[in-house]
Design a protein around this nucleic acid. Structure first.
Lengths: 184, 184, 184, 184
DNA sequence: CTCTAATCGAGACGGTACGTCGCGTCTTACG
DNA sequence: CGTAAGACGCGACGTACCGTCTCGATTAGAG
């Protein structure tokens, strides 16, 4: 039904003004204009609803980034990522700087791990899960900081930081011969 | 008086088995063997109690690390940090791998920022708060992963990873001429 | 819903054994077999619940008495009153001889005053509110004593006492022709 | 010690502005300027403190009235009573029109019964305890009304009412042949 | 004149009831 | 049938006083 969308929209709107923890299911259904009982036909808890929203958005983000990365290079992936987030700034602000950050982070990590498992290069100097962990963590930390800025740093610059400080240090280890790599 | 310690101990014990969010104040006082009302004579909320515990532990950790760093070098600071955490593995596992991670992370960041403000070198290539953010975030992510391992990576190795992937990439930017410093 | 009745019944039962003051809302809901919260969906305080019960019973009583008084005479009203109370002895015992007496008395007085205001004969020798006060007070004192007796005085006799000692002395002043009256 | 007096005074002062029920022991000791614990060295509960105060005042009142009654006649007793209360209007207002009324009434009745038992004339038409009950009840109702008046009815008039409507109707019954009695 | 002992303050503490909030279940009525 | 509306039981919340207790600090009487 369209109730499901209404719920997602309502939650996102509420998240703009209120920490996730203190949003109640009754708040959500009121905003969505549907009955209290109906909520439970879609999700068992409000956390689940948030998880679903997060998973969907993250999925989008990943697809874009991976596609760019495959077509061109690492940096293109980063650029795609930041560009996409920038295009949906309000929502990502909500997801990353509100009370929902923890959930989103976990979801993010889970999906990244799945991808890394498939594409992983196990012979790396760094244990692969650590690489994933640090890249995802660093990326999210950077994103969060960026989203919080009143006058955000330009994409070009933030991508450069991301590459130099978050991505390369991790991937570099894999090929000790090319210390600081590529493009830039 | 002795209630305060009992509360801290009880919360830490509970955290070993239960996510922080779903620990109730009543659980804590029951475990601590004190009256429900007494809890509020020490802390306004359970979050505050957790914050106090975290702040104390983090303070300890920082002092040690900073002292080592001042006396020798960056790497000595890292080594001190991981050594100390290793010596109190159960508690830090609880703090970082349980539901309390978010709070601890914030507390950590707050304290790190204070130190960075005092010792900061504002001419850096990277905005200084980003540097702090990424080092703290990366360190905690790495710590968390390390604490979760059944057979933990040796300290020497984890310090090496920390240095190479978390610390240096951030600090290096400050002086692009000396790309990868020290040991390695 | 049926909760409301259950609450009233439960309170009356508890009042048979316990002073009102030291009955807790939790006692009432336990006896009534309903949830604690549900109490407040019906009444803001236990005093309010008692007031509602009292008002209902007193209303009954007044209607009966006034009807009798209108159809016949003062004494018929008294007789109706004592007869009705006698027919519901357990409940009125509870209301008047337990800790609830104060509330019932106030409620009684309030309703009596309303009636007196409508039917009042302002030219009386006695200030009219004093008349009401003394008749209500005397009637209740007498009732309370009567309800407490193990072998109650017969209705005929108690009505006689009521008439002679409570009602007539007050009303008599209004009719200068009757024996003991007047300015003096 | 003088703590005891301080407590009594403090309670009476508080009663002027606050219903007895919602005065706390802590309020009383704060007003009295003594320690919380000390309260319990004198009284087990605040009700007991109130009872003690009431008993003392009522005792005073009774002695005066009885003395006047013995020396002269019933009416002199009434006059003494109302005169005394009038002389201590603020305190008796507090005792009778505040939340303490119930306790005072009971205390009053208890003492009156004791006296009636000693002086009682068992051959009365009215059961003697009913007589006591109605006189005490009526007297207190009348007193309460009188104390609540902004411009109180003169003592002479209130005594007349008291005599005619409260006292005589009860005592008269003992000898129906002599309508208005006096001395006896 | 001191030393011991009673008296009182201050306040930590365990406890009970309060009234509120949000949860999730269930029943009923409408469309 | 599916959705609304809402009564209900539940359990945690944080608050207010309760009455008990253990501490000093003062004050007084006995050695």
């Amino acid at each position: 039904m369209r109730s499901a969308e209404a719920l997602a929209t309502a939650l996102l709107e509420l998240l703009e003004t209120t920490p996730f923890q203190q949003i109640t299911i009754r708040d959500i259904v009121a905003k969505a204009g549907i009955g209290y009982t109906t909520f439970f036909r879609h999700h068992a808890t409000k956390e689940e609803l948030l998880g679903a929203i997060a998973a969907e958005q993250i999925n989008c983000l990943f697809n874009l980034s991976l596609r760019a990365m495959d077509a061109y290079d690492l940096q293109a992936g980063s650029t795609a990522l930041f560009t996409y987030v920038n295009a949906h700034r309000p929502m990502w602000s909500t997801l990353l700087t509100g009370g929902a950050a923890g959930t989103v982070r976990e979801e993010f990590l889970r999906m990244a791990r799945d991808i890394a498992t498939i594409r992983g290069e196990p012979d790396a100097w760094l244990p692969p899960e650590v690489g994933t962990l640090l890249i995802v963590g660093g990326t999210l930390d950077l994103l969060t900081w960026w989203l919080r800025q009143p006058n955000p740093t330009p994409i070009k610059r933030i991508v450069e930081i991301h590459e130099r400080v978050v991505v390369n240090p991790v991937l570099q280890g894999k090929d000790p011969k090319t210390p600081r790599k590529s493009k830039r």
